[in-house]
Write a protein that binds this DNA or RNA. Structure first.
Lengths: 217, 217
DNA sequence: CGTGTTGTACTGACTAGTCAGTCATTCGAT
DNA sequence: ATCGAATGACTGACTAGTCAGTACAACACG
């Protein structure tokens, strides 16, 4: 169709100068991440994102195949980053309790620095799209495996008592998420990690009130 | 517009007879709950729900003002039920540890019986609609308050060591959610509660490996 | 130097499809 | 015959994705 698409405005404003190199893509990711963290996937339109970046909608499609793809790329980027930080830490040969504490610290620190994206990543929107579901599941499983490794190491070392690492890893995973999201505090990542670690390691029971007593309830 | 809406089919099938009284509404809620638990809010259409119930879409609007409203009513119903069960339990004068264990048991039991709706309720779709956000926040806060009460009681009784109840309640909240969702097990609600309670109360550290050691890490 | 050509980043009006909600009509029980 | 319950075709608003066209820079050539 050879229709002229010129509008009333007739080339209203001059083009903004081109942005460096791959900066556009990064710009779009940042803006989209912010929006996705504020509203749900479906409530963020491609027009919203375009407006926030200050480009036309078509531009976004020069860098991403689809909305789903953009969403997935945001998650992937962040995921890779935190996971590599964590795996670098666990590769060290610290004793298990210290290792766990450090990992918690790194997670809380990363979270504090990446509130927006983490909020998306941890969202339980397991039904959005198939890829998203698979992605978050993969991520969850990998994190839980990481915890399990540390726990197993601790049990072997004798620093942790013997328990089912599967359930315990799940517990740690869930509790970390909850603290990340809902714990309002001015404290540093390290001191939050410290507090959380202390609860995980010692439990809630008073030393006087011992297992024997609790067991026959 | 006084246009005739008759289609080619021309009254294809006979109407199903009317259903008892308020049974229709309950039917719709159940069908919708099932669908919402399988797909996200936006991916479930009113046509889907109508089809699943076996009525026309218009019928749903005889019982609910809007899709949002239907969604909210599902949540409200379930929420009221579990919360009243929990509050009946906490009103008893059991010692705190037993009380906590019982509450965990009831939550897991209720969850096992109401997988569909709980999956919706605990979903972190905090941005769907304003009412939904307020609703889930209200629910979370109330549950956390419930944990806090039990924890405070335990500290006063001397059965729990003194810790920050706010953070600990948040931890329990998160860990329960995680276990509910992801713990694949054939065990009964009681025995899951037992396992979880044991982790919460005793922690992960081996008795030999004591605080002193952990503290100077 | 001016003029033409090419490459590319970008634009935004438009298309095609979706879906919540409506309402004129029909059903069926009394 | 009457009337409330139920129907489902239709509407209107919305949005992901498209693509013909624009702007501009860089280089080429006479």
């Amino acid at each position: 169709m050879a229709k002229t698409r010129k509008s009333i405005k007739e080339q209203a404003h001059a083009h903004r100068g081109q942005i460096p190199k791959g900066a556009r893509k990064e710009e779009i990711i940042r803006a989209a991440a912010k929006l996705f963290s504020q509203k749900s996937y479906h409530d963020v339109t491609m027009d919203d994102i375009a407006e926030k970046v200050g480009v036309a909608k078509g531009t976004i499609y020069l860098y991403f195949d689809s909305k789903e793809n953009l969403y997935l790329e945001i998650m992937e980027e962040t995921y890779e980053e935190i996971e590599s930080i964590l795996e670098r830490e666990t590769a060290k040969s610290d004793p298990a309790p210290l290792k766990l504490k450090k990992v918690l610290g790194l997670i809380f620190k990363f979270y504090l620095q990446n509130l927006d994206v983490l909020r998306i990543l941890s969202r339980d929107e397991t039904h959005l799209i198939r890829e998203h579901y698979e992605f978050t599941e993969h991520w969850r499983l990998r994190r839980i495996k990481l915890y399990e490794k540390i726990l197993e190491k601790g049990i072997n070392e004798g620093s942790f008592r013997p328990f089912k690492t599967e359930l315990t890893a799940l517990i740690i995973f869930g509790l970390v998420r909850s603290v990340m999201f809902y714990y309002k505090s001015e404290k540093s990542a390290e001191s939050i990690a410290e507090e959380v670690f202390s609860m995980i390691s010692e439990g809630i029971l008073a030393p006087g009130y011992e297992k024997a007593e609790a067991a026959r309830m």
